[in-house]
Simulated scan of single mutants.
Amino acid sequence: MPKVTLKDIAREVGLSPTSVSLVLNNRPCRVSEENRRRIKEVARRKHYIPNQIARSLVMQQSHSFGLVVPNIQSRYFASLANNLEILCREKGYLLLITNSVGSSESDTELVRLLVNRGVDGIFLVVSDEFTTDRELIDDLTQLPVPLVMVDRFLDGVSRDRVRYDNELGGYLATDHLLGHGHRRVACIINPESNTGRLRLAGYRRALDEHGIPFDPGLVFESDYYIPDAWQAAEGLLATDATAAFASSDNIALGLLKRVYEHGMRVPDDLSVVSYDNSAADSLFEPALTSIEQNVPAIAGVAVEMMLARVGEHADDAEYAPPVERMLTPRLVEKDSVRAL
Rank of each mutant, 00 (worst) to 15 (best):
R45I: 05
P216E: 12
E34Q: 14
E209K: 04
A299T: 01
R265D: 06
D175Y: 03
V157L: 12
G92Y: 00
Y203C: 03
G211W: 11
H313M: 12
H262S: 08
D208A: 12
M149V: 07
S74E: 14
E261L: 13
G202H: 11
L177K: 12
P28R: 05
K7F: 10
I137Y: 02
Y76W: 09
M326R: 05
R265S: 10
V323W: 05
A43Q: 02
V13K: 01
D335I: 00
N250A: 14
A232M: 13
G263Q: 08
D249A: 08
L270V: 10
S100Q: 10
V185D: 01
T5N: 13
V145D: 01
I72Q: 07
D8Q: 12
R184S: 09
G181F: 00
A243N: 04
P28A: 06
F123K: 03
L84C: 10
V310T: 15
L288I: 06
G156S: 09
I226Y: 13
N26L: 00
I188A: 12
V126H: 02
K3R: 11
V332L: 09
A317P: 02
A252R: 07
V272R: 00
S103N: 13
E41K: 15
F130M: 11
L172P: 00
E318P: 00
N166S: 14
V332R: 02
S278V: 00
F77P: 15
E129P: 08
I39Y: 12
L154G: 05
R36F: 08
V23R: 01
V111W: 01
N166Y: 11
V332E: 08
Q52S: 15
G211K: 03
V13N: 05
G118F: 04
E34M: 10
D165H: 15
S103C: 08
V4F: 09
E129F: 00
E109K: 14
T242I: 01
F214C: 07
R152A: 13
V162G: 06
L95F: 11
D128E: 15
S64Q: 13
G300D: 11
S336L: 11
E90L: 10
Y319L: 12
E85N: 13
V162T: 08
